[in-house]
Structures are given as C-alpha cells and as structure tokens.
Simulated assay, not measured.
Amino acid sequence: MISHRPKLGAIPACLAAAALLVFAVQQASAADRAGCRDFEGMMRFQNSSIALCDLRNFAEYTLPTGRITGFDFHTNEAEMEARQDLEGRLTQLLYTVPKGASSAEVFRNYRDYLASAGYRVLYEAKGPDFGAAQGSFFESRGPGGQIIGYSTDQSRYLAAVKDDGAAKTYIALYIVEYDDGYNPEVKVEKGQVVVRLDAVQTGELKNGMVPVSASEIAKRLDTSGQVILSGILFDFNKSQLKPDSRPALDEIAAFLKKDPVRKVYLVGHTDNVGGFDFNMQLSQARADAVVADLISTYGINPARLKGYGAGLLAPIASNATDDGRAKNRRVELIPQ
C-alpha cells in the first residue's frame, strides 16, 4: 500500500496507525474483484480496491511516451508524439480510491513509490498537456471504458521502466478524477479517483507455441487442405522472424524434404489494426520472410515455394478483441 508521507514530528502518530493500515490492506483485498490481484511487487494507494482487471500471458501493447495528438475511432489507433511498441506478459488493473483523495495526491505517491522501487520515468504529463485524445486511447483498450475516457481534466500520466538484466518491466500509470461516463461493472462517484495501471513484462517470456510436426503438416494437408503454422513469430509490426521461430521452421523444412516434389504457398495473415494497405504489405513481407528462410537456411528449391499476403481479408476470429486479433496474426501453408 502506498502511504501518505508523514509530516515532520508526526512519526509516533504514524506508528500508532500502522495496525490500522495493515487492516486496511485486508479490507481492500476483500473488496477486490474476484480473480484480480496486484501486479507482482507493486503496492497500491491506501484503501483502494481493484474494480476490474485483465491478465494476458502474451500481448502487444503500445506505451505512450509522448503527447497523444489524435485518435481514429474506426481503427482504435492513436497518434502520438512518441511511443514504444511492446510485447510480453500484460497486466491491466483498474483501482478505485475512496473519495477524498485527489488525482495529484495519488499520482505523487505512485511516482515516489515507483522511484523507490527502481523504476525510471520515460514520460509524464497532466491534464490537457497529455493531449485531447488521451481518454479515447485508454478507454479503447483495457479495463475502465468511459469512466476513464470522459474524465481527463484532472488526469495524470506516467510511463516508466525497470531493468532487470535481460528482462524489463514497463508501467503505464493513468489516473483521473471521475467526472462523467458509465460503466455497468464499476460504481464510482463524481470526483472519486480512478487508477489504471498497466504493466508489461518483456524479455523473459519464452514462446509457448508448440510447432506443428512434419508428419502433422502432411496429415493436415491431406485432411483439411491447409495448416496454421504455430510458432512462426515476428517482431511487432515487422517482417523480421524471431529466433523462437526456428523449431517451427525446422518442421516445415523436414516436411518439404520428405516430400521433395510438393509445392506450397506460404500465406501471411494479419489483424485489422493499422489499415488495409499496411496490413496487405506486412502480410506479404512476412510470407516472403518465411520463404526466404526456407531457401537460405534449408536449401529448399525456390520453385517449390510461393509467398502470398492475405492481410486482414481472411480472419478466423473477431478482430474486436485482443485474443481474436492474436489468432488472426498467423502464417498458413497451403498446397499449390
């Protein structure tokens, strides 16, 4: 729990209140939404409770590190002066603070705590300085909805990072004093502080996708006419293959070598984030990257391979959710 800084000469009063503060933590835990808990190693503002949460083992995340200058409501994409595109384990928490505290007070306590915990500030802003589209950005992704999207006048924002060897933890802290907006899952009063805390852990996650074996590729081609190639991974919004893709590429090459006359298409697919033209180009580049690697690394005859980018035109899930978009970002193998 993040406590208020004591005034000089007030130490005895703070010690006397220690038992009450421990009890407050227990009460906050009891009031938390079922299944939600604090981000590991992170403390909360005193007496606050978790109203909503969202946890994902692997997700893409855009961290604002500059003013948010615009927002496209058709694509849910924001324009900003600076950003970091991340991917890793994502924890998103929405806290409600009992009425009486201000957003400035809560923000100051969080900022001081993050500094003491080894986090380095990348960017911070308050109110209109963070941009008119700030509420739309946070409302569109993660828990909270309108109650954080419609209350930007007294907002506070901070982006920070903590290095831990090869791993990093990024924090996006967005704090508002509720003014307007409705969310049926959260009960909040006008003037009450609401905290959105997003934490992204990068650099420590291993690919959890099991590649399709060579024999399974052959079987699926015969039975369904196509194979989704689990384990083919790319950098965010790029066509560079990640090293973790190697086991999947090994199996594709083994399949092609066992059936040396087989010709195949490698088809790249994307979600709908970023627009039509961008996704068509990205999917083609990713398909071509797989083809190029099979040729250069495994010596597969180029005449047997053809890359094709389908972009966002053949989704297998809804693009309205992160899980659906993750399923739509894929590479498929189809016989020629």
Rank of each mutant, 00 (worst) to 15 (best):
N301I: 07
P302S: 00
T169W: 00
R330M: 00
N319Y: 14
G268H: 06
K238A: 12
V291Y: 06
D322K: 13
Q192A: 06
G100L: 01
Y150I: 00
V22Q: 04
T65K: 02
T321M: 05
N57W: 03
K306S: 11
R83N: 02
S3H: 12
E77Q: 14
I217R: 04
S102F: 05
A167F: 03
A16H: 09
Y119E: 01
D198M: 01
G144R: 03
P302N: 00
A104M: 07
R220T: 09
Y308M: 07
N109S: 14
D153E: 09
A253V: 12
N237I: 06
G100E: 00
E204R: 12
F255A: 03
G88W: 04
F138K: 08
V331K: 11
A16K: 13
K168G: 02
K7T: 08
G307S: 03
P98A: 00
A132T: 13
V194W: 05
S29C: 04
E87C: 10
A16D: 07
S103T: 11
M42Y: 06
V264D: 03
G35C: 04
E79P: 15
R141L: 09
V200P: 10
F137K: 11
I175N: 06
L197N: 05
L229N: 10
V261M: 03
L256N: 03
A285M: 05
L173K: 06
F45T: 13
M209P: 11
G274V: 10
T270D: 01
G274W: 09
T223Q: 08
A166H: 09
R246Y: 01
N76D: 09
S230F: 07
L52W: 01
